[in-house]
Every structure is written in structure tokens, then in C-alpha cells.
């Protein structure tokens, strides 16, 4: 860990101002950042501790939305009565991630900013365009087991590793961001994370001097909510693939199908075409296959991770079958 100045700002705006410096990083739970600082993947000169600045509350808004403060821990979010009752896909996604020890520390905002687990990103003696622009991608010609099959670029095939944001993407949640000039903006979770393109170092749309203040969940909707995570170990492992689904039926037809996928791309993957395809249809194995085809029509494997394409297709089918109570 490189030496850094540890600062505890007096206010959120102060924190945002301090974070404007490109050599400064905000720290909340620290479960990902400290890991990366020990490896010198992250080497901030200044650490801005944003804990104890409020933002630890979950509040019910009169319009039926639910606001989760950026510093609400994963544990607090997963255990909140409203989230358990109205947004079980989110509670389930959070509980499927990491461990109780880590969830007790990890925060909502921090988890959205979690960086990739790519083995080449976390090893500073290997090439990585995300960590060191222009150094190359070790994974494309190397071991790409964890890596993306959708939305990749020739620069980077890393995945976003989290679970929580996948459920938030299915829920169409919104991220609230405060800038150093006290301006605020709101970005849909679905647009918060970036694809690698030719700027692989960019995980998300946050600009220097911007801080996440909250995530708002839309009013609850009818339907079955499922979070399905496929992993090598039965616990404490990142997803090979995961599916967050909110599926509602009207009679024997699908009336709502909000889906998002983890482990497949540089961001929680949301493809609006799936909803268009599924809504109004009778559930069937053929329909689920069609959905899989659509989801993965542009998928590209890199050898080691080719399996993710059939795995994602099968996991999607399993989730749709469960949600629609269809035998396949």
C-alpha cells in the first residue's frame, strides 16, 4: 500500500470537492478498495473517508419509491423489511454475494463501484488496459475463464463482478450523484456502468468530484422475483453467470419480464429486446430458447469462457421456467 493522506471531510460537498483530485479516492466500506490498494492496483495519494456523513438511511418516499442511502450496508439493505417484502430479487442478490463479514462492511454505493476480478487487472506485473492504459490485455490471449462474452472490446473483456447491481438493473433503479459544485444528477443503474470500448479504464459514468449519494428503487411491481446465481463453489464465489428476473403473468401469458444478467459483461447486462419478445407470449421451452438466442446472438467467447454462452442460455431458461411455472 502506498502512503496516502487520510482525510475525513466535514460534508458531502467537501468530500466531493476533495475527490475532484484525480489522485484522491473516496472510501466507504473499503472491502474492494483496500484489497486493491494492498495490491497497488489502486494507489491514491489521498483517501477521502465518506463514512459518518449520513447516507446510511433507507427512506420510503411518498411516491412509492424507496431510497437507499449510498452508505447503507449490504446487510442493512438485504434485511430491510421493505426490501425483503417488495424487492426480494434485490435482497436475494445481495445475500448471494460475498459473505456476511463482507456484507456487513460493504455499502450500496461502494458495491456499485466494485471493480473487476479479472486476474490480470489485480496483478500489477501483468498487462491490463483497464489498470494501465495501453499495456495490453493479458486475458484475451491468456486465461479468460471469468470473462465477458457480451459487449467486449479488443481492449478489455473484464466483467463487472457484483450481484446487487444486477438486481438493481432488473428493477430499473436510479443512481443519485452529487458533484463538487453541489449539482445533482440521476442516472439509471442500467446506464451507470460502461462497456469497455476503447476506454476500458472507465468502469462507470462517475466523473472526478462526483459521489454516489443514493439509489432509488421504483415503486414495487407485481410478479415473481428471482435471483439465480451459478458459481463453482456453493457459496463465497463470484458468478459464472447470474440472472435477475421480475416476471409477472396475466392469465397464462407473460405480462412483465424484466431481466438482467451478471457475469456476462463489463456491466450488469440488460437487453430491452427480451422484454419485448416475452411479454404477451405463452411461456414455453421454445420461447425461452428464442429468448436465449436473442440475448446471446452477439455473444463471443474467448476460449476458456466459451461455456458461458450455453450456461447463460440454460440458466435463463431455468429462471423463466421457474417464474412462469412451466415444465421444460
Amino acid at each position: 500500500m502506498k502512503p496516502f493522506q487520510y482525510t475525513r471531510p466535514e460534508s458531502l460537498v467537501h468530500a466531493a470537492q476533495l475527490s475532484q483530485d484525480t489522485e484522491a479516492l473516496a472510501i466507504a466500506g473499503g472491502t474492494n478498495l483496500l484489497d486493491l490498494m494492498k495490491l497497488q492496483v489502486e494507489t491514491p495519494d489521498r483517501l477521502v473517508d465518506i463514512n459518518r456523513l449520513g447516507l446510511g438511511e433507507i427512506t420510503e418516499n411518498t411516491d412509492g419509491t424507496l431510497r437507499i442511502g449510498a452508505l447503507v450496508t449490504n446487510t442493512a439493505a438485504a434485511n430491510h423489511p421493505r426490501i425483503r417484502a417488495d424487492y426480494p430479487v434485490l435482497a436475494r442478490a445481495i445475500l448471494a454475494g460475498a459473505t456476511q463479514q463482507l456484507r456487513n462492511k460493504a455499502t450500496t454505493g461502494g458495491n456499485l463501484c466494485q471493480r473487476t476480478r479479472c486476474y490480470y487487472f489485480t496483478n500489477i506485473d501483468q498487462p491490463c488496459n483497464k489498470r494501465e492504459p495501453g499495456s495490453g490485455c493479458g486475458a484475451i490471449e491468456g486465461v479468460a475463464r471469468l470473462h465477458a462474452v457480451l459487449g467486449t472490446s479488443t481492449e478489455c473483456i473484464a466483467t463487472y463482478p457484483g450481484d446487487m447491481a444486477v438486481a438493481m438493473s432488473a428493477l430499473d433503479a436510479a443512481v443519485h450523484i452529487l458533484a463538487e459544485d453541489e449539482s445533482e444528477r440521476t442516472v439509471p443503474v442500467r446506464d451507470f456502468h460502461c462497456l469497455p470500448g476503447d476506454t476500458p479504464w472507465r468502469d462507470n459514468v462517475l466523473e472526478p468530484g462526483e459521489i454516489i449519494t443514493a439509489v432509488t428503487l421504483p415503486p414495487p411491481v407485481q410478479g415473481k422475483q428471482i435471483y439465480r446465481k451459478v458459481r463453482e463453489r456453493s457459496s463465497y464465489a463470484f458468478a459464472l453467470t447470474s440472472v435477475a428476473a421480475i416476471i409477472a403473468m396475466e392469465g397464462d401469458r407473460i405480462a412483465r419480464a424484466d431481466l438482467a444478467f451478471g457475469g456476462l459483461a463489463h456491466k450488469p447486462w440488460h437487453d430491452p429486446r427480451l422484454s419485448t419478445l416475452l411479454v404477451g407470449k405463452l411461456p414455453s421451452a421454445a420461447l425461452f430458447d428464442e429468448a436465449g438466442d436473442l440475448l446471446l446472438e452477439d455473444a463471443q467467447g474467448f476460449g476458456e469462457n466459451d461455456f458461458k454462452i450455453p450456461l447463460a442460455r440454460r440458466t435463463l431458461a431455468a429462471v423463466l421456467a421457474e417464474a412462469t411455472e412451466t415444465e421444460i
Binding site: 486476474y119 490471449e141 457459496s235 463465497y236
Partner: peptide, 29 residues
């Protein structure tokens, strides 16, 4: 079911060199 060392084909380094990515069994396994 889970344990496997993975080596980079270009320089031979051990790729999954930590306890998050070398999957020894956890309680639930």
C-alpha cells in the same frame, strides 16, 4: 468439483493465486 490451478499460457504464471479464485471448498460445499 472446484480446485484447479490455472497457468497463463504465455509466461506460465499462476493466474488464480488467491483464495477468492482458487476454489478450496467452503462450509456449504
Amino acid at each position: 468439483l472446484t480446485e484447479s490451478l490455472m497457468f497463463d499460457p504465455n509466461d506460465g504464471h499462476l493466474v488464480n493465486c488467491d483464495l477468492a479464485e482458487y476454489h478450496m471448498p467452503v462450509h456449504r460445499d
